[in-house]
Design a protein around this nucleic acid. Structure first.
Lengths: 387, 387
DNA sequence: GCTATGATTTATTAAATAAATTAACATTGA
DNA sequence: TCAATGTTAATTTATTTAATAAATCATAGC
């Protein structure tokens, strides 16, 4: 309840500027007249605000639109190449680094595999080399770097920009924001992977025109995000979404959290590997996926089993949140139909009918790139919020 | 994404008016100068807005405060007796009707028992007679009725003001808002019981100074509400919070929803009755409660068992939402310590430690009156939103 | 009397709306 | 074919709203 922002002229302008940027992002190229109509603003106000945005290089005038019996509309769009963003995804099996433009289009990217033993210092070195190579390979980026967006799995402290705990590598309390800001001399922003995914869907994917939706990221863990009016719901200590540790059984395999019955142990990629192992397949998740594609019955059974539980977990989300949309993301979900379809079917079975039938369940639109694009949005969000 | 409200002078004023009313509600009696300081508004703005509110009879000048070396501050407070509100709670075992003032203080109330066979028409008759008696008994209310707030269990359509489905009575699609508006010729507002409870806590209880909190109402069913910046999160079709039908087991007793494993079947008052029956006690929940107070071991065991599962369910909420506060309400929670304490203990056991330790779990402050007070807030909210 | 605090008044300012104006077209009819 | 007319888009100018800033009035303590 601190930081009270009362109504003021600045707030008024900020609201309208935000709305105008949003509509240009979502529906651009678009004319000033149409902006005015859809936002219930006067043409004069739109002219004034767009003039400032053009001045600040955020948007540009592009082509002329079709006339419908009068002057041709001048279409406005985001100035995609005014600045560039470096985006980093620290996943459990690799670090992906990319350069994106202002529309979060990926210009170039590098993926480096990691091992569970990879230290934080090694990871920083990987990032440094990747970014330097990307900048060298893309001349036009030089001197036009707007900022760095970082998405990491595990627990992060968004405000302080620290990785609190990274389960796959065992890193604790790493001040990655400061490290990268010093390295590249631009502002950096950190959030957890599932929230980056949610942001990407909210800005560019299925969540574009939806007030409220749920994102679920299934990897070795299972995390969720709730996006409400383009805002992430964060909880009290930034810990919203530890869905993988909610219980769907009174016993079960021991979870990393020390308890039993966690969703994570029944339905994650880790669970797929366990089920496969029980059936005699000693392989990682991607290998099980390959086998399932080749018709290996044991692999299919393992994946189906995990997807059944995942569906039950999704049903729980539907019953709690009554969402209009659930977006699923993660390596296996992205590419394996047994897993995705199985989960959807199972969700139908366990959710309340009235709530299930109004809820769309989709894959993340940009699939493997969703998180990297979302990390870029972390930077854009900050820019657009502070105009 | 319709109904876009751009920044405008009206919005600016509405924001500030809302902030000022809120602060007078929360911290009143309070002087204009202090309002200005806490809200970062200029004294002149506060003078202007408070003048209008005084003019509209929403607030009044009360006593003079202590001087700290200058002119004595004129304290402002809500005009508690300017209007009155009728509040109705349709619970599973009775209908409670009350008259409240503008501070949601209950002036008078009537409770009428119901049976599962009670028809909607009978219920409306009960309400009619109760309200008429309340008005007769409280002369000053005459002609000063602001509106009617209705809280009902089951599924409601807030926008249309309809009871969609009332599981305990079997009512379907009853247009209670229209019925009551015609009967008393004032506006009526409907919401589900747990949201009324959440509103009450948000305005007058533990949620007063908290940005975000969870409310859980345990009766024959289990519902939750998420309050975010004084706003209820409603989901897509107003169905947020069907927590009682989330699964915590792969089997279990058949639930009213047609599935097995629902929280409701393990931890609600209905579950307490079932566990008691299994131990040879054939009694309703309140009777089991009485027995437990008299030291009946079987009753205590039954309650403890339900509370253990309830705690697991609460742990799931903690893991998902990372709340700062969870408010528990419902007949048995209100009065039975085995149930409440057992649930808190069990939540500690099953929740992630980092998230549990920042979360307070409390009983609803106004206990049995929480819902009736919250129903009044439905009316107040509408008034304060439309000044 | 002086100084500090609370509340109000008056003047100013920011940023919206309203209305008029300019720009650039399409349509129509002689 | 092209001038007249009507439309739509964008901008300019005047006005309005509701904020802030600064001065003033009202009380108080010392």
């Amino acid at each position: 309840m601190d930081n009270i922002v009362p109504g003021s002229f600045q707030l008024m302008k900020k609201i309208n500027t935000g709305l105008i940027i949003d509509i240009i992002r979502l529906k651009g190229p678009i004319s000033r007249a149409e902006i005015a109509k859809t936002l219930n603003l006067t043409p004069a106000t739109v002219t004034n605000i767009t003039a400032e945005l053009i001045n600040k290089n955020i948007i540009v005038e592009s082509d002329l639109g079709q006339s419908t019996g009068g002057r041709k509309p001048i279409l406005l769009k985001i100035n995609a190449e005014s600045y560039y963003i470096v985006s980093i995804h620290i996943g459990s099996t690799g670090i992906r680094t990319a350069i994106l433009n202002m529309e979060s289009k990926i210009l170039d990217k590098i993926t480096v595999k990691t091992r569970p033993e990879t230290t934080y210092e090694e990871a920083i070195k990987i990032i440094k080399e990747s970014v330097e190579r990307l900048i060298t390979q893309n001349e036009k980026v030089k001197g036009k770097l707007l900022g760095i967006g970082i998405a990491a799995h595990g627990i992060v402290d968004t405000e302080k920009g620290k990785i609190v705990f990274s389960p796959n590598y065992g890193w604790k309390d790493k001040d990655i924001r400061t490290d990268l800001e010093r390295m590249f001399d631009v502002p950096a922003f950190l959030d957890r992977d599932v929230r980056a995914m949610a942001l990407s869907e909210s800005w560019y994917g299925a969540g574009k025109y939806v007030d409220q939706f749920i994102s679920v990221k299934i990897g070795y863990g299972v995390g969720v995000a709730l996006t409400n009016n383009k805002q992430q719901i964060r909880g009290y200590t930034d810990g919203f979404g530890e869905f993988g540790h909610t219980k769907i059984a009174f016993d079960g395999p021991l979870c990393s959290c020390g308890n039993r019955g966690c969703i994570e142990t029944f339905s994650s990629e880790k669970a797929v590997e366990r089920y496969a192992a029980e059936l005699g397949i000693d392989a990682d998740c991607m290998a099980v996926h390959e086998l399932s594609l080749n018709g290996d019955e044991r692999a299919i059974t393992a994946i189906n089993k995990a997807s059944e539980y995942l569906g039950l977990a999704i049903a729980n989300l539907i019953n709690i949140f009554n969402p209009r949309l659930i977006v699923l993301g993660g390596d296996l979900i992205d590419i394996n139909d047994y897993y995705f379809n199985g989960a959807v079917e199972s969700a139908k079975k366990y959710a309340l009918t009235d709530l299930y039938k109004v809820c769309e369940i989709k894959r993340a639109e940009s699939k493997g790139d969703a998180i990297i694009k979302g990390a870029a949005v972390l930077v854009l969000e900050n820019l657009f919020d502070n105009i």
